[in-house]
Write a protein that binds this DNA or RNA. Sequence first.
DNA 1: CGCGCGTATTCCTAACAGGAACAGTACGCT
DNA 2: AGCGTACTGTTCCTGTTAGGAATACGCGCG
Lengths: 182, 182
Amino acid sequence: MTTQLSTTSYALLGLLVFDSATSQTGLTGYELKQRADRTLRFYWVSPAMSQIYTELERLSRSGFVEGVDDNAGKRTTRRFRITTAGRTSLTDWLHTSEQDFPILKHPIALRLLMGSLMGPGEVESMLDGYVEALAERRKELEAVRELLGDNEAVAYPARVADWGLAYYDSEAEIVEKLRRTL
Amino acid sequence: MTTQLSTTSYALLGLLVFDSATSQTGLTGYELKQRADRTLRFYWVSPAMSQIYTELERLSRSGFVEGVDDNAGKRTTRRFRITTAGRTSLTDWLHTSEQDFPILKHPIALRLLMGSLMGPGEVESMLDGYVEALAERRKELEAVRELLGDNEAVAYPARVADWGLAYYDSEAEIVEKLRRTL
DNA sequence: CGCGCGTATTCCTAACAGGAACAGTACGCT
DNA sequence: AGCGTACTGTTCCTGTTAGGAATACGCGCG
């Protein structure tokens, strides 16, 4: 009897697993959001704050995470750790679930589709802007990649980062080539 | 005073513009869904039926589309056409709005992040499965591309399709290379 | 004629985004 | 010491989106 969770739930569980490798105390919702912003957003979405807290609530009810009140300092916050049940659920998911195809929401491609409704210079400058944005993104991801180094413990995250970098490179190349055909 | 619409709204308006080039009668919500499934889903999401109808309702209230009852045949359906106001709104959007960065929801990359929690063979077979799915997708998009041909009227959609094909190729290459490093 | 499939629409529910609101904490500046 | 500001931490609200179930008509086929 496995409780059904959303992919985003499992993504958060994953973050908590990685945290548990180096820390006993667990993470607050706020900290979880920061980690998601740093890494998850490149390959998935970084969930809204509101969603993180509701997700933690749900995971907590299912027994996959446990929230402990932290009274260090006057202010009380809740720190969440993954439970063994949570670990099991996560690995079960990794083993069994259908992997579905990536979803792309590509506003630039969508606009290009209607390129005939735009002026000729406009399409070009849109694509140029996109190439710039890609370079920026690449730089951000590069910083993450360097942080990972060649540490064996984070070999998989490093591979994913490399994947992302290669993707940005190829995307930039495709768009530049495309721009020249206009 | 431009009414604020979602990107998906504009995507639907775009479909209606293209339709209006070849037909007077307009499209039903159902037909709109089919067109979205055929083309939009590669670069954006194909909205759920429920969303298409609510979107049409909203667009209709804003005066960007007009719905006409169609009594040909015994059954009454509503067919929607874009209005001149709708056209204006769409081109305004193409001209002025911020273009934001694509959003990728990549379940495979997400799983690979947690590769250390999976068995060694599992990661490989996951990637293999993905490469296969990519090939299938590519074939579907190729069919769309061939439909477009080198017709000047759909030059932009053809370019977007080419972009998509190049993306699938590069993605497959990256993943295959990645798989070899495991 | 009855069955199944494609067409067409509506409704319901849960997930999700985004931001406002609120409050405590830390730190530097004067 | 007091003040402002930025960061941390959580909750709430509203609207949007996803997904699927439910309904119903039409058409063609055995």
